[in-house]
Computed example of a mutant assay.
Amino acid sequence: MNGLSPDLQTPCLVVDEARMAANITRMNTRIAGLGVGLRPHLKTAKSIDIARRMLPDSGGPATVSTLREAEVFAAAGVRDILYAVGIAPAKLHRVQSLRAAGCDLAVILDSVEQARAVAAASASAPIPALIEIDCDGKRAGLAPDAPQLPEIGRILHESRAELRGVMTHAGGSYDVSGTDAHAAFAERERLAVVTAAERLRLAGLPCPVVSVGSTPTALAARDFAGVTEVRAGVYVFFDLVMAGIGVCAVEDIALSVATTVIGHRSDQGWIMVDAGWMALSRDRGTAGHTVDQGYGLVCDAAGRVIPDLIVTGANQEHGILALRAGAVGPLPDLPVGAVLRILPNHACATAAQFDAFHVIPAKAGATPVIWPRFGGW
């Protein structure tokens, strides 16, 4: 069945290997052409099989968003990992355990309190840390000109901890559309960390790593002067949010949820499927876009978009398919038992609902395979 097992049990998570490989190649080629390193973010995939395809080398470098990810990938041989969420002091013992086992795991922080906790935890063995810089007011981090920046740097540098550098994430790039707008955000991102790095160096402090990253800015940046590495992750699959802001085409989206038609409500203009919000997530990231894709865009079993058919409603285990507002014409004839695929708004949120990827092989006629996926913190 279009590269999937004929006895597929739905709902399940599907990855198109050929599209995924093309997405990975696109990012690798672009970053290499701009002369910086790539530190792929593995949070969306949470899969050893996919990580091996994303990483420049089996040992890394890699980015993660949970210590559970760090532990699983370290056990699989990844040895250079950045844990890119502000460190909670109670987690530092897990950081030290990973480092003692041979993983060069670094943490991030943006406060004097965190720096002191890392310094104290480094009494037995150094913990490297990067200072998070806020480039757009979207989440954590210090402003590049924050007065406490050198103080935090000194706490790390003058203890047994290691001041490894600075990092930022342009989350605001998701709020604009088009290559020019994303390029402008990329420059804002670059300038913020380069400015912070120079302040640390002028204070006599080391700053070897200058790290930036988001999929929109990584694919649009025109200048990485002063930057040492780029982090990005959702590019491996893309999603409807990325398509909606012009980062990719709908045809590039490699991730979908396979679902089965289980009924009809002709009086309401609905087709019922067995994928509700427990499979698709409640993410409505395209609601503010020019084109609202509901809870997901519907495709046939081969991955071809069915014009104007979206998931308009989602209960826990039921999805409601209907024509988008303003569309004309009848509903497509989709009988009970028909298998469909739904493209997600947010790949990270949808993938989090599943423990495996059902792979459509890139090689025609190849046997379908399943790649395990994990979760947890």
Rank of each mutant, 00 (worst) to 15 (best):
S5L: 06
Q9A: 14
T10C: 07
L13R: 02
A18I: 00
N23K: 12
R26A: 14
N28K: 15
N28C: 11
R30C: 03
G37L: 13
H41S: 13
K46E: 09
S47L: 08
I48C: 03
D49T: 11
A51Q: 08
R53E: 14
M54T: 12
P56L: 10
S58A: 15
A62C: 12
T63S: 14
F73N: 04
V78G: 06
R79K: 15
R79Y: 00
D80G: 04
A84Q: 08
I87Q: 01
K91P: 00
S97P: 01
R99K: 11
A100F: 07
G102P: 03
V107F: 09
D110N: 11
S111Q: 10
A123R: 14
S124K: 13
S124N: 08
A125E: 13
A125Y: 01
I127L: 10
C135A: 13
G137Q: 13
R139C: 10
A140N: 11
D145F: 02
L149M: 11
L149E: 05
E151R: 12
G153R: 04
G153A: 03
G153N: 05
L156K: 05
H157V: 04
E158Y: 07
R160L: 09
A161F: 03
V166Q: 06
M167F: 04
A170K: 04
G172H: 04
S173I: 00
S173K: 03
Y174A: 00
V176E: 11
S177Y: 04
A183H: 02
A186Y: 07
E187C: 01
V194Y: 00
T195Q: 15
E198Q: 15
L202V: 10
L202P: 00
G204E: 05
P206L: 12
C207M: 08
V209M: 09
V209Y: 09
V209E: 15
A218Q: 07
L219R: 02
A221T: 13
V230I: 14
V230Q: 02
G233W: 01
Y235E: 08
F237E: 09
F238V: 04
V241R: 03
M242V: 02
G246W: 01
C248H: 02
A249N: 15
I253H: 01
A258R: 08
T259I: 00
G263P: 03
R265A: 13
D267I: 00
W270M: 06
A275Q: 08
R284Y: 05
H289K: 06
Y295H: 13
R304G: 10
V305Y: 06
D308N: 14
V311H: 09
T312L: 00
G313A: 14
N315E: 14
N315A: 15
L323I: 11
R324I: 09
G326P: 02
P330F: 00
P332L: 10
L334T: 11
P335K: 15
P335A: 15
V336M: 07
I342L: 08
F354M: 08
K363M: 10
A364I: 13
A364V: 12
G365N: 07
P368N: 11
V369I: 12
I370Y: 01
W371V: 02
P372F: 02
G376S: 10
G376P: 08
W377T: 11
